[in-house]
Design a protein around this nucleic acid. Sequence first.
DNA 1: GAGTAATGCTTCGAGTTCGAAGCACATAGC
DNA 2: GCTATGTGCTTCGAACTCGAAGCATTACTC
Lengths: 168, 168
Amino acid sequence: MSTSPTPPSPLDSVQLGAYFVLMEVAGLLRHAVEQQLRDDGDLSYVQFQLLARLGLDSPTGSERMTDLADGVVYSRSGLTYQAGLLEKAGLVSRAPSADDERSVTVTITDAGRSLISQVLPGHVEVLRQQLFSPLSRTDTQVLSDLLAPVRDHMRAAPPRSAGSRRRR
Amino acid sequence: MSTSPTPPSPLDSVQLGAYFVLMEVAGLLRHAVEQQLRDDGDLSYVQFQLLARLGLDSPTGSERMTDLADGVVYSRSGLTYQAGLLEKAGLVSRAPSADDERSVTVTITDAGRSLISQVLPGHVEVLRQQLFSPLSRTDTQVLSDLLAPVRDHMRAAPPRSAGSRRRR
DNA sequence: GAGTAATGCTTCGAGTTCGAAGCACATAGC
DNA sequence: GCTATGTGCTTCGAACTCGAAGCATTACTC
């Protein structure tokens, strides 16, 4: 209430270590993956994420811009830019949504699907070598189970651009 | 073994899930942290990493450019840019190394140390709320133990710019 | 059903990132 | 010692990213 300046109560070394190693692994993995995608299909990591989400996750192969942006943790303006590139490359098409005239629906094309399947094997191989080779089946399961609640928790309290434009 | 084209052998769903959740948590966490750093000390995530490494990890408060770049998973040219910004802000100083005339040694200044301690409490608070609140003490330890070998493995087989300039 | 607020996307400018090329110093081989 | 190769850092250009501001459509409220 007055000037209690958040008593330090620093993280213990285990927590700090977990934080650092988490961020570092993610960073290194991203670099490795990025390089493979560039070599095999001339795609950036974000572009691959977008295509994968459309081609593998979505049953219809379509999604709204906003849902795509949220799903990939990405700014809206950045998505506009990337969607433009993907469209120019013929991997994706954009059209105003049927029900909501404001929305734009992005749909993966056949070329897009084919590019995914061209890139995927190498992608999987990188993951296997870089990420999974030091992890047993059980390890992987445990890792996943530990992080899933964290993801859900973070999604719930969105630090993202999610906040309403300005909560007045 | 003529044309065995890397038999698909796709990752199972557990592995895929682990991959996705790992990358997503890291992404979300980075955004959250970035915002806090911006608000509390006008620092980017990379800048904070650099200062933290100099101020908290290094006993002397100094490191060579290359070691800094490797430690932070960052390109050399990018580091040159950021080191320039930090120097201009008075948080860091640069000087040619004593033993090797090519090297540049970066050293954190008092202002840099003071900025770290100004930003750290809020940083820790974000981590506590975003990352650690869904994790028990044991969970955190396990997570750290799972990822440490992965990091070591990835560091060993560097996908980074590490390769010699061109292995001829 | 008119007016206000909220939502969906894009444009714009500024800042950041990377790799390739280049410069300077250091090391190796002869 | 002198050339050839390697290493450390910086400069340069191109590409990417973000948030703020703007435009269009939809949802609320009375």
